[in-house]
Structure formats: C-alpha cells, structure tokens
Simulated scan of single mutants.
Amino acid sequence: MALFSTLSDVDLDRQVVALSRQLDDLRKALAKRGDAYYEDGRGTSSDYYSQLADRLHEALPAIGRRGRALERTARDHPATAAAVGLVVVGLLAGLLISRR
C-alpha cells in the first residue's frame, strides 16, 4: 500500500489518459487489420465462386446428358429404379438414426 500512497491523483489521471490513448490506437490498428482481412477474404471467395461457376458451366451439358440417360433407364426398368430408390432412402435413414 505504501507504493500507492506516493502517487498523486494527477499522476493517476495522466496514466489513465495515456492508457486510453493506447487503447484507441490499438482499436484503430485492429480495425485496419480487420478491414484488410475482410477484403482478402471477399476477394478469395469471389475467385472461388468464379472458378466454381466456370466448372459448372462447362460440366452442365454432360450432367444434362447423364440425367436424360438416367431418366430413360428408370422408364425402361421401373422396378429396378424403385429398388434403388428404396435402398438410397434406407441408407439415408440409417445415417440419420446412427447420428443420434
């Protein structure tokens, strides 16, 4: 306690003001870094989205052809399509139940 008795109120006020200024400087520095990280993240996500859109655009005709072939197969073999559908539903139900 003797250490605190030697400090005057003016010294304490000066220290509080100095600490407040340092906190403000730290807040500003963090805000600048946060803005930079946000911009980097936004740019990166935009690049990933563009790449994904390009790949999907290139793959869309092949996906359409395979979808039509699958539809024809399901029409030609309805019992097989129903059995495969039931197996998929059963697998999904099993996965959902096992997570509990």
Rank of each mutant, 00 (worst) to 15 (best):
A18R: 10
S45W: 09
L52F: 15
L3A: 11
S5K: 01
L60H: 12
L96D: 08
V17C: 07
R100F: 03
D35A: 13
D35E: 10
R55A: 10
T80R: 05
G43C: 11
T6E: 02
G41C: 04
R33A: 10
D76R: 07
R14M: 12
A18H: 09
L91H: 10
L52M: 14
Q15E: 08
L52N: 03
Y38N: 03
T6R: 00
T44A: 11
A31H: 01
R65G: 04
G67V: 13
V88W: 12
T73K: 15
L60I: 08
G43E: 04
G85E: 08
R100S: 02
V84N: 00
A83Y: 05
L70K: 12
L3M: 11
R27L: 14
A79M: 13
L95K: 09
A53N: 11
D40F: 03
H57A: 03
R21M: 14
D25V: 05
G43I: 08
A31V: 02
A59D: 05
Q22F: 09
H57Y: 15
D47C: 12
E71H: 07
L60D: 01
S46C: 14
R42V: 05
R68L: 13
T80D: 02
L91N: 07
S20H: 12
L95D: 09
A2I: 01
A62P: 00
E58T: 08
G94R: 03
A93Y: 13
L12K: 05
L12M: 15
D40A: 15
L56A: 10
H77M: 13
A74M: 08
A79H: 13
V10D: 01
A81Y: 00
R68W: 10
D47W: 09
K28Q: 13
E39D: 12
D11T: 02
A74H: 00
A62I: 08
S46L: 11
R72S: 10
S46G: 04
D13T: 07
Y49V: 08
S46D: 09
A59G: 00
R100H: 10
G94K: 05
L19F: 10
E58D: 09
